[in-house]
Design a protein around this nucleic acid. Structure first.
Length: 463
RNA sequence: GGCUGAAUGGUAGAGUGGUUAUACAGUGGAUUGCAAAUCCAUGGACGUCGGUUCGAUUCCGGCUUCAGCCUCCA
């Protein structure tokens, strides 16, 4: 496999990636609704599609990546009301915290980060177009999309509307013509955010923003649309319906990609269940790179069960990779790009195969092992290859020595004290005073510091 | 109830119609004053029942279990 293949959740198959225009790749990913802190599940699409973005940029000259922020939503209204704050205040705060959080996961900034509130005009235009074309209707102050008017409705998520209605457990609003019709525009009262529209003062339905922002920033048809699996229905299904109907049936999205869930003890992690770990809390305990590594250690379409032990495993693995670089600190990485590319190739191939990051990581181990046992000349090459391969996944971007030393614990030994004790121990060793030497090492051990003796001296790291 | 998807060694996790995934943990060895780190070696797996096949963990079908969607959700 030498070209990119992606699993298209529309066709349910892995397909070769044939972009609409190789000179302008377009990708859109659904970002969060900003009403509280994001949890690690929200971070998964950010990291997964960041990895895809990096990959695309390597293979195409011009990639335009948009990731939105939903800042109009009834959940935000509710949070603002409960906290006695303005809606904008709440959404601004959590939008910024979202960006700060994922920046710690080494997620690149997308080219465009559109916000719903900046695109109300575009949304109104789209609603009007849908009404004009007979795909939407007004009822009791609402504008609804008529799913009956779109014959492919349900195709993306593989659903049959009749079956769904038969199994429906939710009461249908009386003004809907069809139970599956969804809101494009709804009325607002004074306490809710609203804008003037041909249908009165109101606000858009949730699905509309993505359709409108994609049209404005990326075009009528885009290559890749990504998001969490839980968005496939109804959110993405409704986007397809709106956009196709507004654009007279033109293709909306060529490749749909959905990432699997983060689970907790096998159960989906979600804000409504409350079984969440916020990224912010996790970052208190471990470096962001550890979190990114965990997220990439399972294939993006598979569920990933979050636990203390996967975090520990990721940290240990990264320790090993950084150690390989650290041991060769004195070696200048090679700049022989052709030779480096050869060594990095297996990693690139794994990524090109529908973002097989676990396989790519296994190749990282191979490079690290080769680096560990290489002589100086080969070390330069393997070191460069390991760094390059890891960077392609947004990994190993920290300084190896700083990584080893970790963060000094406030009540533990300072770096200076550590160096002093190491000097004392070196003297004890020279005197063959093994008891004192071991005593000092035990002292370190209590502070979670591990000593490593080598021919060139003693080094230390925080375990 | 309808529809999806998943089930791999102690754990995490790829992949494949016949030949080593990989990592952590374990075991043996090299190395070390002893360790640590590193290297070498090694045991251990494909939910269940059938079918196709010379041969299936891999393809097909039934079953079981689990998760998810059908309501906001990454």
């Amino acid at each position: 496999m030498s070209e990119l293949h992606v699993y298209n959740s529309h066709s349910k198959k892995k397909e070769p990636f044939n972009p609409i225009d190789p000179n302008r790749i377009t990708m859109y990913v659904c970002g969060p609704t900003v009403y509280n802190l994001i949890h690690i599940g929200n971070a998964r699409p950010a990291v997964v599609f960041d990895t895809l973005y990096r990959l695309l940029k390597r293979h195409y000259p011009n990639v335009i990546y948009a990731r939105n922020i939903t800042d109009v939503d009834d959940k935000i209204n509710k949070a603002a009301f409960e906290q006695n704050r303005t809606i904008k205040d709440v959404s601004d705060e959590f939008a910024q915290k979202y960006l700060d959080d994922i920046a710690h996961l080494n997620v690149l900034e997308p080219d465009i980060q559109p916000r719903a509130t900046d695109h109300i005009g575009e949304m109104i235009t789209m609603v009007q177009a849908l009404i004009d074309k007979g795909h939407a209707y007004e009822a009791e102050g609402h504008v609804l999309f008529a799913v009956d008017s779109f014959e492919n409705y349900g195709e993306l998520s593989g659903r049959d509307m009749d079956d769904m209605i038969a199994g429906a457990r939710v009461e249908v609003a009386p003004y809907k013509r069809h139970a599956a019709d969804f809101v494009l525009w709804k009325p607002s009262d004074d306490s809710q955010p609203g804008w003037e529209s041909p249908w009165g003062y109101g606000r858009p339905g949730w699905h509309l923003e993505c359709s409108a922002m994609i049209e404005k920033h990326l075009g009528i048809s885009i290559d890749i649309h990504g998001g969490g699996q839980d968005l496939q229905f109804p959110h993405h299904e409704n986007e397809v319906a709106q956009s196709c109907c507004a654009h007279d049936g033109q293709e909306y999205v060529r490749y749909w990609m959905h990432n699997g869930y983060i689970t907790m003890k096998g159960e989906k992690m979600s804000k409504s269940l409350g079984n969440i770990f916020t990224v912010r809390d996790l970052l208190e305990k471990v470096p962001g790179e550890v979190l990114r590594f965990v997220l990439l250690s399972a294939h993006y379409r598979k569920p990933l069960d979050w636990s203390e032990s996967v975090i520990e495993a990721a940290r240990k693995t990264l320790d090993g990779l950084y150690n390989a670089l650290y041991l060769k600190s004195a070696i200048e990485p090679s700049s022989d790009t052709a030779e480096i590319e050869k060594l990095v190739e297996p990693v690139e191939q794994a990524l090109l195969d529908d973002l097989n990051t676990p396989l790519a990581i296994s190749h990282l181990h191979e490079l690290a092992k080769q680096l560990n046992k290489a002589d100086d000349e080969h070390s330069a090459l393997y070191k460069a290859a390991l760094i390059e391969a890891a960077h392609r996944m947004g990994l190993l971007f920290n300084n190896p020595e700083e990584w080893r030393k970790g963060d000094a614990v406030s009540d533990g030994l300072s770096d200076d004290e550590i160096e002093q004790l190491i000097t004392e121990r070196a003297q004890a060793k020279a005197d063959k005073n093994w008891a004192r030497a071991d005593e000092i090492r035990d002292l370190f051990s209590e502070s979670n510091i591990i000593l490593e003796d080598s021919a060139s001296g003693t080094t230390w790291r925080r375990g």
